[in-house]
Write a protein that binds this DNA or RNA. Structure first.
Lengths: 342, 342
DNA sequence: TTCCAATACTAAACCGATTTAGTAATGACG
DNA sequence: CGTCATTACTAAATCGGTTTAGTATTGGAA
C-alpha cells in the first residue's frame, strides 16, 4: 500500500541504504550525481513518504512534544498553546495535546501515555487543580529522563525549567495606574493563595499601595480561588463594605466578568461607577472595555517550547526560570476617582 | 536507560514472547498462573513502559489522530477540540494538533507531517481561508488511505464523512424569534458566501422571513466574509439605511462584537436600542448579554472523533453527513420592537 | 605491474515490540 | 510401550527505516 524505502530502492535499482543516504542528504558518503538525481526523481514520482515511526525507533527521537493543559476552555491557555504551535511549526516538531479537564488522575494517565509514545519532552501548563500533583508528575518525568518545562508556576524552579509572567510587576503596574487615577480605596479581587500567580498578584498589589503610602487593609482583599463561585461571593463582600472601594484590581478578567454576571442586581448597580483593572486581557476584555494586564500568552508558549528544545539538546544546563514582561492595556474601565460617567 | 521488554524478560527468567503475552493478556496461549504473576510483578517493579513506536511499526496502528484547525484563537474552535479531547481520552487515542494559522501552505506541510507520523486518521476543522485547498487535502488523504472527517463544511459530503450543525434551522430559529418579538425590519450581518455555514445561515434567515410573509430585501443583508473589517463596514452600511433595521441577526457573535467595537461612535449609538441575535454563543456573549444560537461545539468535536473511529474500524461504510441540532439562548439583546430600555 | 587511495555503492545489524510456528515435557489412552 | 493431545513456553521473523563496516571498481603513482 504505502511506498517504502525498499520500493523506491527496487524501482531505482539501488539499495535501501543508497535511498536513505540520498534522501537524508548524507554528504559524508560519496554518491554519483546521476544516482542521486534518479533516486530523488523515483521517490518523488512514487510519492514516497518516510515512516517516522521506524526512524524514531532507531534514533530514539520522535520530534514530538507532549503538551499538558488543564483545559482548552480558557482562551488564555488556548493562546499559550497557539504560541507553542507557532514555534513548533518552525522547528518541525509535532504537539501531542492532552487536556486533563482539571483532573489529576486524567493528568497522570495521559502523561503515562505520552511517555509510552516516546515524546521528546513535555510542556506542562499548570492549573489550580493540578498543582498539587505537579511534584509527582515531575518525579515521573525525571525518572523517565524526559525533559520538561513548566508554565505559570515557579514553585519548582530549582529542579525544572519554568516560564512565567512578571505577575508581581504586572499587578504593581495595574494598581499604580489606579492610584494615579486618584483612587485610594482600591480593592483586590484575588485568586486566593493556591497558585503562585495569585500570590504574586496580591504581592504586587501590596507593593503598589506601600509605594503610595496607602495602608494595606485586609478587608479590601477577597477571593479564595479562581472559581466563579468564590469570586462572586468575594465581590459581593467587597461591594458591601461600609465604605465601598472606588476601584478594583481583579486577579483575572474572566473572574471579574463572571462575578459581575453572578452578582445580585443591587450589587451590580453599585459597581457601575467603579474603576477596574483586570488581568489576562481576554478577547472579551476589549468588548467590555476592561483595562487589563496583558501577559501575551503566545510569547509564553513560544518561550516555553523554545526552552524545551534547548533543554533537549543540552540536558546538562542548569534549570532556569524565565519571567516574561507584561503590559497594561488601558480601556474605559480606567475611570478617574469620583467620575460618574458610564 | 528505559526498561524494555527484554529487560523484564531477563529479570523474570522468561522470554520476551512470554512477557508480551502476559502483559497483553493473550489468553489464547496457555500460561502458568505463577509465571503470569511473576512477570506482572517484575514489570511493575521495574517500571516497564511498552514502547508504542515499536508496537505501531508492527501493527500499522498508532492510536494517534491528526487534528487540523485554522487557529486556536477562536474559542469556538477551541471548544470543538475540547470535545475531541474528551472523546479521545475515553478511547485511548492521542491527538496531534496542528494549527494552520489560516494558511493553506502550512496546512499542506503539516498534513504531510501527520502522514509521516502515521496517524490513523485526520480530523479537519475547516476555516474560511483553507476551504479552497480542502479538495487537495482530501485527495492526498484518499491516496494515502487515511480516513478523515470534515467539520463545519459539507461541500464534499458524498466523498467524505462530515459533521456540521443545523445552521439553516438555527438561523431560522433566531430570526423567527426576532419576528415573534414584533420586529419586521430585520437585517442580517452575513459571513458572505465563501462558507457553507454562512450560506446556510442566510438561507435560514430568508426562510424565516418568508414564513412570516416579510418580503426579503437584499439591502438588509450585508457582509462578505467572517473578517472584522468586512463586518464593520457591513454593519455601518446597515445602520445607515434610510429606515434602519430594528433588529439584527448576526452570522457570528464575535463578528458582531468586533464590528460594534470598530464602528464610529455615532453608528454605535444608533445600535444601542436594536435587538440582536448572534451565532456561536461565545463565552463573552453571556457577558455582553447577546442572545445567540449555540451549536455546542464540544458535541461537534465528540461526534466527529466518534465517527472517525468508526470509519477506521469499518472503512467500507458509505460517507455520511451528521447534522447536529442547535439551540437558541435568549438574553438581554432579545429586545421587543419599539423598546427603549438599555 | 603492483599497490594504495579514492569512489560508489551495499550487506547486515539494529531499534523494541508482536506474532507465527514450533519445541520440549508431561500425561492419558489404547 | 508408543502415540497423540495438551500444556507451557520460546526462537526467529517481522515492521521500515538508519548506520556501520565493508566490498568492488577505477585511477594514479611508484
Amino acid at each position: 500500500m504505502r511506498v517504502r524505502n525498499l520500493d523506491v530502492a527496487r524501482e531505482a535499482g539501488v539499495s535501501p541504504t543508497t535511498v536513505s543516504l540520498v534522501l537524508n542528504d548524507r554528504t559524508q558518503v560519496a554518491l554519483a550525481p546521476e544516482t542521486k538525481r534518479r533516486v530523488q526523481e523515483v521517490a518523488a514520482r512514487m510519492g514516497y513518504r518516510p515512516n517516522l515511526l521506524a526512524r524514531s525507533l532507531l534514533s530514539g527521537r520522535t520530534q514530538t512534544l507532549g503538551v499538558i493543559i488543564p483545559s482548552l476552555s480558557s482562551s488564555y491557555v488556548a493562546r499559550i498553546v497557539e504560541g507553542m504551535q507557532e514555534e513548533a511549526g518552525d522547528s518541525n516538531q509535532q504537539l501531542l495535546l492532552t487536556d486533563t479537564r482539571h483532573d489529576p488522575e486524567t493528568e497522570a494517565a495521559q502523561m503515562e501515555l505520552l511517555l509510552r509514545h516516546s515524546v521528546d519532552g513535555v510542556l506542562i501548563v499548570t492549573g489550580e487543580s493540578t498543582l498539587r500533583s505537579l511534584p509527582e508528575r515531575l518525579r515521573v518525568l525525571r525518572e523517565a529522563g524526559v525533559p520538561c518545562v513548566v508554565i505559570d508556576d515557579q514553585s519548582h524552579a530549582e529542579q525544572v525549567d519554568c516560564v512565567v509572567s512578571q505577575d508581581r510587576i504586572g499587578a504593581e503596574m495595574a494598581v499604580t495606574h489606579l492610584i494615579e487615577l486618584g483612587h485610594r480605596r482600591i480593592a483586590h479581587l484575588s485568586g486566593g493563595s493556591g497558585t503562585s500567580t495569585a500570590r504574586d498578584r496580591l504581592s504586587g498589589y501590596r507593593r503598589a499601595l506601600k509605594r503610595a503610602s496607602i495602608p494595606f487593609q485586609s478587608e479590601w482583599v477577597a477571593g479564595r480561588s479562581f472559581s466563579v463561585a468564590a469570586a462572586a461571593q468575594a465581590l459581593e463582600a467587597l461591594v458591601s463594605l461600609p465604605k465601598p472601594p472606588t476601584a478594583y484590581f481583579a486577579a483575572n478578567d474572566r473572574l471579574w466578568a463572571e462575578a459581575i454576571q453572578a452578582l445580585r442586581p443591587r450589587s451590580a448597580r453599585l459597581l457601575r461607577n467603579a474603576a477596574v483593572v483586570g488581568y489576562a486581557n481576554y478577547d472579551f476584555s476589549a468588548y467590555l472595555g476592561i483595562s487589563s494586564v496583558d501577559q501575551s500568552p503566545q510569547s509564553l508558549g513560544k518561550a516555553a517550547l523554545r526552552r524545551l528544545l534547548d533543554r533537549i539538546e543540552t540536558p546538562s544546563m542548569p534549570p532556569q526560570c524565565l519571567e516574561l514582561p507584561v503590559n497594561l492595556v488601558v480601556r474605559n474601565s480606567s475611570k478617574p476617582v469620583g467620575s460618574s460617567a458610564p
